[in-house]
Amino acid sequence: MAGCRVPVALAVALLSGVLAESGGALENHSVIQVPNGGPWGAWAWQEMCPEGTYATGFSIKVESYQGLTNDDTGMNGIRLHCTRGDRHPAHDVESQSGMWGKWSEPLWCPPGGYLQRFSLRVEKVRGGMKDNMGATNIRFTCSGGETLEGHGLSWGEYGVWSPRCPKGLCGVQTKQEMPRGALRDDTALNDVRFLCCSH
């Protein structure tokens, strides 16, 4: 269409999402996800742990409660901390994150453990002119059976647990609603899926 141009950064982001959605970048990695993610936004790019590492911990980016008259976005991002089994050195991967909130301190599986499955807390669609938030928190189980819950918000409900990645999590892909502008309702992170380690 004449006169219609898409900014380069947006075009790259959209293309990355399309390539990721098509499965072309999945290689031999299986994907785990849950059915209760929020409805807004689009899938961003995948980001993988470096070869030979896997997720032994995570952090989340959360906007604190903004009060009755302000817009809340809840969870804005998820980082996997990838290591070779120890906590340090760690390489962080996060796909796309929203612009609001602060990153939490990492939560780690016990020594020798790694993240295997997850459950997502999501606020149901509220309708009308009410403030929607999408995803508000996440929890994981480690290979030794321990549960780690993020320091997110209490709104919404946890859904079912995802399938398990027997060899751990090696990548992440988020579904983000881009900022909508002044006086519009933003929800930021709505859904996430993880790529399983193949070896």
Rank of each mutant, 00 (worst) to 15 (best):
L169E: 02
R121H: 09
Q66H: 08
Q173V: 04
E94W: 15
P110H: 05
E149T: 15
W100T: 07
S143V: 06
Q176M: 14
T83G: 09
G152S: 12
R79K: 11
G127N: 05
C49A: 03
E94Y: 15
E63A: 11
V160S: 12
F58I: 01
H91R: 15
R79P: 00
R180S: 00
N137G: 13
R126N: 12
D71C: 02
D72K: 00
R139G: 14
F140E: 12
D131G: 03
G77Q: 01
W161L: 03
G52A: 00
S143I: 04
M133G: 09
W100V: 08
T83W: 02
H151M: 14
S162L: 04
G181L: 06
T136Y: 05
R79G: 00
Y158E: 05
T73C: 02
G134L: 05
G144L: 11
G98S: 06
W155Q: 13
H88P: 02
T187C: 00
K167D: 10
T69C: 08
M178V: 12
D92E: 15
I138D: 08
G144R: 14
L120M: 13
P111E: 13
G74S: 02
E105D: 11
L183G: 08
L153A: 12
E123H: 03
G181K: 07
E177K: 01
K102P: 08
G127P: 09
L153Y: 10
C82A: 02
C142P: 01
R84P: 07
Y54M: 11
D185Q: 08
C109K: 06
L107Y: 10
K61P: 08
E47C: 12
S64P: 13
M99Y: 14
R126A: 14
H151F: 14
D131Y: 06
K130S: 14
S59L: 09
T83A: 10
T83I: 02
G112L: 03
P111R: 04
C49K: 03
G128F: 10
N132D: 14
